[in-house]
């Protein structure tokens, strides 16, 4: 109880430094949070997109429908493949006209190639597998061309990785800076209470007891920083939702984990510096 009170006293005595600690922790986690959100949303988009990932093998004109059906059956048995359907020329035309709606007249009298549409099992819809299956499908002699959303998928994957890495790097940098600033706060707090600490030692207070308020102070700064970061991230996401695109937010567990990470930063910053500075008092 007394430790908590002492920790709060330090907050009051060095409000600027304490606020600075809280802010840098918040920025650290905010960086994690923002890039984390980007990564999360790209992943979400990828999941949705991957649902539609199809390999479409266009079949040469004049191939017998039986051969196409046979090939589709073979392909359906590949371990990566969910299903493979034959699309005849007529079906292809009907589908194109339906997709184009008002502009369906464009296809009047046109001939579209027949195809085999291949859908992969969930979890197999990554660029490498798609490429591998596409290559096998292309090996059928009557297959003219194979299309799949190759570039798109790769770009999205890469973007997600970049967002993830950027978040971690920026976040860790800020975390290190937070630790340093918390260290400075603790240093000020220790120095401003040097006399008190010396007397505590003389009358037989244990080191653990003397440390406790400083560590609690670091923890408090961590919690506040974490909450502030969550607030900032939520606010940023609301702005994006309103003006850019609909995005999803972290679930409660991840949000709590973020605050916990703030607590860890606060704890480490204070533990490392309090030991060092107490020894000098």
């Amino acid at each position: 109880m007394r430790s908590l009170r002492d920790a709060l006293i330090t907050f009051r005595r060095t409000p600027l430094l304490s606020a600075l600690s809280v802010t840098t922790i918040a920025f650290s986690l905010f960086a994690f949070g923002l890039f984390g959100l980007v990564a999360l949303n790209i992943r979400e988009a990828l999941d949705r997109l991957e649902d539609r990932v199809e390999i479409r093998a266009f079949v040469a004109d004049g191939t017998a429908p039986e051969s196409i059906g046979q090939a589709a059956g073979d392909i359906a048995h590949y371990p990566e493949v969910l299903n493979a359907t034959m699309v005849t020329q007529e079906q292809a035309l009907a589908r194109a006209q339906k997709e184009l709606g008002d502009f369906r007249d464009v296809f009047e009298g046109a001939v579209l190639p027949a195809s085999i549409d291949v859908r992969l099992k969930p979890g197999m819809r990554n660029p490498a597998t798609v490429k591998r299956v596409a290559a096998r499908v292309k090996a059928f002699p009557f297959v003219d061309d194979v299309r799949f959303g190759e570039e798109w998928i790769e770009k999205l994957y890469r973007l997600r990785n970049i967002a993830g890495i950027a978040g971690v790097v920026l976040g860790l940098t800020f975390a290190a800076v937070s630790c340093i600033i918390i260290g400075a706060t603790i240093r000020m707090a220790v120095l401003s209470r040097a006399k008190e600490i010396a007397i505590m030692r003389l009358v037989g207070a244990t080191d653990g007891y003397i440390r406790r308020p400083f560590i609690i102070e670091g923890l408090l700064q961590g919690v506040l920083g974490g909450l502030l970061a969550l607030l900032l991230t939520y606010f940023a996401r609301s702005l994006i939702n309103r003006y850019v695109i609909e995005t999803i937010f972290f679930d409660r567990r991840v949000a709590l984990l973020g605050i916990l990470f703030g607590v860890v930063i606060g704890f480490m910053g204070s533990v490392f510096s309090v030991g060092r500075h107490l020894r000098r008092v």
């Binding site: 006399k195 505590m200 030692r201 003389l202 009358v203 244990t206």
Partner: peptide, 29 residues
């Protein structure tokens, strides 16, 4: 720390905390 609880230490410069009353200074120990 335990030993010092059984010792009383007094200095030339008193070493009292200025922002505490006499009672609070004694209670501090």
């Amino acid at each position: 720390a335990k030993l010092r609880r059984k010792l009383g230490i007094v200095f030339q410069d008193f070493r009292l905390l200025d922002n505490r009353t006499a009672e609070q200074n004694v209670a501090f120990a």
